[in-house]
């Protein structure tokens, strides 16, 4: 176990080298976020004041996007998938086959440390941003919901990581994985609720989405925080999310073991 602490430590130091990059990323990222919030304000201002849009007040809608940003800072896979694919392509993974280190756990530690540094860098600009919009920010309804939100965020992170890991395994078979990663990302961006809360969609569409893992990659924890998923639906959702995490873990493991067979055949 101790060796993985070292990995986290190394990961933190490596990621510190990218702190300026992280800062640019988070600050530039605020621009489209702000633009989206403005767009919603224009929609609300075109209606009689106090009108809700799809059962969201303006404050709730603003909070939704702020929460998405926070969950994104906590869970987004930034460079991990590219790095894993590059490790495979450049043959860097050979050393892990010889050492008593499990590559997936190793990458998970690096992912964890990169999130830690990203959060540390993002904290100040994000805090300022939240401060400016504090009148529009809604606090969680009750502590129990907040606890469930945190648990769900952890699972969101794991789900994001395992999916990215499994996608990066494509590098065993194809030369250029970035297109595949972007294609999946496009679906994830739309169907996980990055662009808009999923419950403003027609009901049938929202229901269909719940048969995919996408809502559990973003929308689900945010909806718990906002008190839009409660009671039995929440408990049931947490179990489904856990199931997706386990499934994505096994797919990631399976893809690796298949890939390694192919890899040794080529590299040997």
């Amino acid at each position: 176990m101790k060796k993985y602490w070292h990995v986290i430590n190394i990961g933190i130091q490596n990621n510190l080298a990218y702190r300026v990059n992280f800062l640019f990323r988070i600050v530039f990222g605020f621009i489209p976020l702000l633009a989206t919030i403005y767009l919603w304000r224009a929609i609300y201002s075109g209606k009689p004041s106090g009108t809700d849009v799809a059962a969201y007040s303006l404050a709730q809608m603003t909070s939704y996007y702020l929460l998405v940003t926070i969950v994104d800072v906590l869970t987004a896979v930034s460079e991990d998938d590219w790095q894993i694919a590059a490790d495979i392509k450049d043959g860097n993974i050979s050393q892990f086959l010889l050492k008593p280190i499990d590559y997936l756990t190793y990458r998970l530690c690096l992912y964890f440390s990169s999130r830690l540094i990203y959060l540390a860098v993002a904290a100040v600009p994000l805090g300022l941003f939240l401060f400016f919009l504090r009148h529009y920010f809604i606090w969680p309804a009750d502590p129990a919901a907040f606890g469930c939100f945190l648990a769900s965020v952890v699972m969101t992170g794991l789900l994001q990581f395992f999916t990215s890991y499994a996608m990066a395994m494509l590098a065993f078979w194809v030369l250029e994985v970035s297109t595949f990663i972007f294609i999946l990302f496009a679906f994830e961006y739309l169907a996980s609720g990055h662009l808009f809360p999923l419950d403003i969609l027609p009901h049938a569409m929202e229901k269909v989405l719940y048969y995919t893992p996408f809502p559990y990659q973003m929308y689900f924890p945010v909806s718990i925080y906002m008190g839009r998923t409660t009671g039995n639906a929440m408990i049931q959702g947490l179990f489904v999310q856990a199931a997706w995490v386990v499934l994505s873990y096994f797919i990631a493991r399976f893809a690796w073991s298949r890939g390694i067979k192919k890899y040794s055949a080529v590299g040997g």
Partner: peptide, 11 residues
Amino acid sequence: SVLYLHTDTIG
């Protein structure tokens, strides 16, 4: 198109 499910105009 999702936005315009809920509004007729933006500005």
